[in-house]
Nucleic acid binder design. Structure first.
Lengths: 300, 300
DNA sequence: CGAAGGTGATGCCGAATTGGCATCACTATA
DNA sequence: TATAGTGATGCCAATTCGGCATCACCTTCG
């Protein structure tokens, strides 16, 4: 992909002679000489001083040869990276994710990804938002899927998607026909909550003053499947994002009513990786797959 | 100097379409298409997925376009750097140097440099070795000429030359015909010393236990010209490097006898710059000139 | 469902560039 | 003075690039 000039300049600088460099590269010296003369015309300055015994880099020549060498070096790394991508056979991805993503979104991503890269294996740990971020920050997980609002300095977001909170309920619930509801509207109805709501450290607790609006919870769980069942059974309503309920909403079994509170409607879910460690090729490809899927879904 | 493929790939990735990119670049779309197909053959992998509405980067394509963009970005910087070098009209170099270099070596460097870059001006401050290093470390000087044995973490050496210490004396001195002498040999003869020898902080004091070998000094000065005069006048002998005495040695007015002590014969003089700050173009060119002159002289 | 407008890809060919051979002029060395 | 090195140039064939015209496919709109 690169012009032969780069290696001509590199080798002439190395050999100190156009003829010697040409010999090393199995090219006619006139070809090398012409390319160098052309480059000197392009830059309007000499790259080499001509001496009876050969050539010597000028000041301009030094910076040009440095550029050539860096470019060629980067190109060798590029070739290696492409070889890794093309011939990817194995790799292992440690993933830490919100439980909700394991319903619908994540299985689709993994299915598509594994079709293309069947040799890549996974460890998938479900966790709360903070634990997920922590796992990536600590290097326990290569990739995390979590909310991206308050991040750890040791992680960075590489793809994200708006995922506002709303209220999940059965279609026959009194609030089901609203265009939106407030958290205050939920007071008086039993709630299904995530496990961290017990310690009042859930996102809802953090964003809404639940001392003023006491929410009555009849079901805490960290198992998303249990939350679904409880909501479908009419045991309560849940304040969640759509992510884990896409198929239930589409089938009409459940309904998602957006929350009016701006703070809860501005949340995003994202793929996060370490801010400091190089992302391994397989993990890099996987977050690319996440990003492509983000473009295909709608969590609002 | 770079193949048009780099900007073709860049622009196609940006536009998401070969035809749109071709239009932006005022090139036939077939030319762009062929170059991309050729690159895909070279890498043996697709760089773009073909969609009905255009193209989308593949995983391999992402790393290739990143390489192209970095190379083109570096190339723009290269062009700017060459413009600076070629059209250098002004610039100012703050130089801190050992007094001894101002006799012979440094004037020659500056004469050659100023012939090539007449618009560059200088501030030249003479100082001791430690003060010189300190000036560069603190950013007071762009370039320093000093001994490079014990450096400051904030400076780095960009060129150096062996410059062993020896004894400078008149040719009629009793020690003048020796092939080498020891410091102990000097005891009993009056010495001309650098100013820092008064506080016993000179290099000689640091490397030789002068409490055990008491050297009797009759002349301290930080003015190299004064040291020369004193030695030529027979007032004493001096423990110096050759740097400031080259012409006197060549003319036979003075003689340099190497010291046997290895620690003092392994010294080098070098051009130093800040380890952290970018070196301005004019200073960069100047240290190149120093380096070229180092190749032409001999301080051993 | 057909027309219109978009896309990438290809055949063909001229234009431009690259590279090889032979040779020149210059310099250094034996 | 002859020899052997260097960079540079004339000439020309080989190769690559780019433009034009066209094809096949897909999406959108009336």
């Amino acid at each position: 992909m690169h012009h032969p000039l780069l290696r001509y300049i590199d080798e002439v600088a190395r050999q100190g002679s156009i003829r010697k460099a040409a010999k090393v590269m199995n090219v006619a010296s006139s070809a090398v000489n012409r390319q160098i003369l052309k480059a000197e015309a392009e830059f309007d300055t000499r790259l080499f001083d001509r001496l009876p015994e050969g050539v010597e880099l000028t000041a301009a020549g030094r910076v040009v040869v440095e550029h050539c060498r860096r470019t060629l070096y980067d190109y060798r790394n590029l070739r290696a990276a492409i070889d890794d991508i093309r011939d990817l056979r194995t790799g292992h991805i440690q993933l830490s994710t919100l439980d909700s993503t394991t319903f619908g979104f994540l299985p689709q991503v993994m299915e598509d990804f594994s079709n293309e890269y069947p040799g890549v294996s996974f460890t998938v740990a479900t966790a709360g938002p903070d634990e997920t971020i922590e796992a990536v920050a600590k290097g326990i997980a290569h990739v995390g899927l979590s909310f991206t609002r308050d991040l750890h300095p040791d992680v960075r977001v590489v793809a994200e998607k708006p995922s506002p909170f709303g209220v999940i309920m059965r279609p026959d619930h009194p609030l089901a026909d609203r265009h939106y509801v407030t958290v205050e509207d939920c007071v008086g109805f039993p709630l299904v909550r995530t496990m961290d709501a017990r310690g009042k450290t859930s996102i809802i607790d953090q964003e809404i003053d639940t001392a003023v609006l006491p929410l009555s919870t009849i079901f805490y769980t960290n198992a998303h499947i249990m939350a679904k069942h409880a909501i479908k059974a009419g045991r309560g309503i849940g304040i969640y994002t759509k992510v884990g309920f896409l198929s239930d909403i589409k089938s009409g079994e459940l309904r998602f009513v957006p929350l009016a509170e701006r703070i809860l409607s501005e949340y995003k879910i994202g793929a996060i990786v370490s801010a400091h460690k190089n992302v391994e090729t397989s993990a890099h490809l996987f977050v690319n797959a996440i990003e492509r899927h983000f473009r295909k879904v709608d969590f609002t």
